[in-house]
Computed example of a mutant assay.
Amino acid sequence: MKPTFTALAFAALLIPATGQAYAADASVSEAQYAQVLAGPWRAPENRARDGYRHPQQTLSFFGLAPTQTVIEITPGNGWYSEVLAPLLKDRGQYIAAVQAPGSPALAQKFAADPARYGNVRSLLFDPKAPVFGPPASADLVLTFRNVHNWVMADTAPAMFAAFFKALKPGGVLGVVDHRGPAGESLEAIKRSGYLPTTYVIELARQAGFQLQGQSEVNANPKDSKDYPAGVWTLPPVLRLGEQDRARYLAIGESDRFTLRFVKPGGPAPSGQ
């Protein structure tokens, strides 16, 4: 069942207002983050987005540990792959879940640098009937700026159900996406690419997840969310080209919610 906006007002009353990071016994160290974020294998255009995407703070909030099995859903050009794969290479497992038929560019990226990506596993999935490996096999499932696409394609409920199945009891789902005004209609969401936070919380709740926390690390108060081409007006897409380009560059990337959900039923996995 798709989340309804009538259910969202009630769901909003249950949300803990917290932005705290979660302590982890075996979390990634400051030195490890510093080494990887400064790594020469990271594409310059990707590194330039760090000020908007805050990878260290975001991954720390989600409880990333170097011993975990982590599934990233639709990594795109591998922006987070450049960070996650090296951190997990020696003691953990990074799995790139790519929508079928796959991404040749991402596969080439992995094949060209075995020192960083030699331990990466790639997984193809059908968004209408997604499967992300054996049940209860992952410690952490991550998705960055993808939920709006699944909402537009009417596949979001199936995706969240598959995340729940793939995670171990106590496992964590981390979600970052473009934050829209509360109470926005589904039609407006599909036009703009912006999602009300409570809509995503309800999607996760209906799949069985519990909201464990929210962070403002990826917030952007400059984002007015009222652009001619929706969220794609802003960088990095800049869909309007040179039209008002300086204005949109000054705003930066979109205002984003950062949500941490947990699969109930057991102790937190390693690193949580």
Rank of each mutant, 00 (worst) to 15 (best):
P3H: 05
T4K: 09
A7S: 14
A9L: 14
A12E: 12
A21L: 08
Y22L: 06
A24F: 02
S27K: 14
V28S: 03
S29W: 10
Q32E: 15
A34G: 14
A34C: 10
Q35R: 08
L37W: 11
G39R: 10
P40A: 15
R47F: 04
D50K: 05
G51C: 04
Y52G: 12
P55S: 10
Q57E: 15
L59E: 11
L59P: 13
F62T: 07
G63P: 08
G63K: 06
A65L: 11
P66R: 04
P66G: 03
T67A: 14
I73F: 09
N77P: 05
W79C: 03
W79Q: 07
Y80D: 02
E82F: 01
P86K: 02
L87N: 02
Q93C: 04
A97F: 06
V98A: 02
V98K: 04
Q99H: 07
A100Q: 13
S103A: 13
S103R: 13
A105N: 12
L106K: 01
D113G: 10
P114W: 08
R116T: 07
R116S: 04
G118N: 04
R121C: 00
L124N: 02
D126S: 01
P127D: 09
P127N: 10
P130G: 05
P130W: 03
V131T: 13
P135V: 04
A136Q: 08
A138L: 04
L140D: 06
L140H: 07
L142T: 10
T143P: 02
F144C: 00
R145H: 03
H148N: 13
V151Q: 11
M152N: 13
D154H: 13
A161H: 05
A161F: 02
A162H: 00
F163N: 08
K165T: 11
L167H: 09
G174K: 00
V175K: 10
V175R: 06
H178L: 07
G183D: 05
K190R: 14
R191F: 00
Y194L: 05
T197W: 00
T197H: 01
T198F: 06
Q206V: 00
A207R: 00
G208T: 09
G208M: 11
F209N: 07
Q210V: 07
Q214N: 13
V217N: 06
K222R: 15
Y227H: 12
A229H: 03
A229Y: 02
T233C: 11
L234M: 08
L238Q: 11
D244Y: 08
R247Y: 13
I251R: 03
I251K: 02
F257P: 14
L259N: 12
V262I: 15
G265C: 04
A268I: 06
S270D: 07
G271P: 11
